[in-house]
């Protein structure tokens, strides 16, 4: 087990991601930020909070999306995936969507997330923000638009973001 990023590094990265979004988006009116359940929402919660601190007068539309029912491996593992809650109270028709997840690996979760999104309406544009991009491990033509950190890993390794609920000790671990 190896620590790839420490709490201090991650805090700066999250701030940077929030600033990048604010830099690119003038008005958040037609933007919906969507965290991917279950692990992506730890990041999206914090990014949304950071954006709110940068642009306090703008109203941020924020939802959570579960992709379980859209996965392409429903019947490939030994057990079936138990879903988490989806909460999207906005019509996504014509909106600009920022999808947020913690680790981008094969790209299959994002594929499922895009399918799930379309069932809520036809967005104008979808972009992807991830905290950790595991380069060279993609199985689908999917690339992130906003990247916290890029790492090079072997397929057999696991990258795990450990979130501390008291915001004192987040870290990114590489597990063999």
């Amino acid at each position: 087990m190896k620590t790839l990023f420490t709490h201090e590094q991650l805090t700066i990265t999250i701030q940077r991601l929030a600033h990048q979004l604010v830099e690119q988006i003038e008005a958040f009116e037609d933007v919906v930020i969507i965290g991917i359940q279950p692990r992506g929402i730890h990041l999206s919660d914090r990014v949304v909070k950071a954006i709110q601190a940068i642009v306090p007068c703008q109203k941020i539309q924020y939802g959570q999306l579960d992709t379980t029912f859209y996965r392409d491996d429903v019947h490939q593992n030994n057990s079936i995936h138990i879903p988490s809650a989806t909460s999207i109270d906005y019509n996504l028709e014509g909106k600009q969507i920022i999808l947020i997840d913690d680790v981008l690996h094969t790209g299959r979760t994002i594929r499922a997330a895009m399918d799930a999104l379309i069932d809520f309406g036809r967005p104008k544009h979808v972009s992807l923000m991830v905290l950790i991009d595991r380069r060279f491990s993609r199985e689908l033509p999917i690339q992130p638009d906003f990247v916290g950190q890029s790492v090079d890993t072997m397929y057999s390794q696991k990258v795990k973001v450990q979130w501390d609920e008291h915001n004192q000790d987040h870290k990114v671990l590489l597990l063999d």
């Binding site: 029912f69 859209y70 069932d119 809520f120």
Partner: peptide, 16 residues
Amino acid sequence: DNFKQVLQRPIKKVPS
């Protein structure tokens, strides 16, 4: 609970 939420969407169907 999750399926009940799906049933309240405009597209009440998942491809699972």
